[in-house]
Design a protein around this nucleic acid. Structure first.
Lengths: 158, 158
DNA sequence: TACAAATATATTGTGCACAATATAATGTGT
DNA sequence: ACACATTATATTGTGCACAATATATTTGTA
């Protein structure tokens, strides 16, 4: 992660990976008190953002795989996560008659209603970043480009 | 995370948090094939970086809490992690005679020797980021500043 | 010197991530 | 129509993160 001509490359403070790791944990730590009143974990909030957006586009129900591709998660993570969300009454999981392999995911009224309570979260977090809108946009873009490079490298080595 | 005057603030693509979440997972995914030959997980690699650096400064053995403060991890995470690393023969855990509450952590010869095999990892990852050294340094700095802001906000709300 | 507060680590339980494998349904080629 | 590959999801097992609680030791104080 760090540099080729550095005195001590294994120093923790040289690692971009550790900066990312720390920032990600600090970020989810800030979400936690905002999500706790909604009885949501952070990954569940991500799933809701996907589903609310699909509902807006009238593309529900959707396949589990669509959620997985959008968030980069496999069924080993999603199946139990979606089951917990179903238990909470936020969504329903049902095998399609047209193709029994596929499980269709759809929001319940409760799941749709939860969106109202989540509306204020993005603005609250924006304030807590302590950055200007332009700075955030730029940083997000830089991080997304890094992610692209990393995924390309990953595919190459496979 | 996103913006105050945005048409749809809850869109996934507006979230800085999701960019961070994705980048962090892409990054650890790239480390995995490099660490697997050393039988290391990514968090274990972080612990090793802390310990190797302390050894360089002749500050071993050290307290569990020092590792925890450096990495931002609590004993609920560290105790089992350090036990697994002890089982592998990389370090020893021993209560101090001077203060029986404290567990001293020290590297074994095997743990010290593992450093040689890890030397090449930072350079390999640097190449895979696809970024110039200056770009990485700048991005790391920007992410670290974000982390500072987020932690400040977290402390305030507590 | 008792005794309460503070400190350091450990334990328990939940929920991700992720690898590896399993299961079942659908599609394909002959 | 039948074997075989492909696809979609589920299951199992390991290892973090993190909250909540427990335990044991030391420190400070009346």
């Amino acid at each position: 992660m760090p540099k080729p001509e550095i005195e001590y490359p294994l120093a923790l403070e040289n690692q971009l990976c550790f900066a990312l790791y720390s920032a990600n944990r600090a970020m989810t730590a800030l979400y936690r008190p905002l999500l706790e009143p909604l009885d949501l974990t952070y990954p569940q909030y991500l799933v809701f953002m996907v589903l609310w957006e699909l509902q807006r586009k009238k593309e529900l129900p959707c396949k589990v795989t669509l959620i997985g591709n959008t968030l980069g998660l496999d069924t080993g993570t999603l199946t139990p996560l979606l089951k917990r969300m179903e238990t909470k009454g936020w969504l329903v999981r049902e095998r399609l008659l047209s193709d029994e392999r596929v499980v269709g995911i759809d929001l319940t009224d409760t799941g749709i209603a939860l969106k109202r309570k989540a509306q204020g979260i993005p603005a609250k977090l924006f304030c807590q970043t302590g950055l200007e809108l332009n700075a955030i946009t730029g940083l997000k873009k830089a991080i997304e480009e890094l992610t692209c490079h990393l995924r390309d490298s990953d595919r190459q080595s496979t």
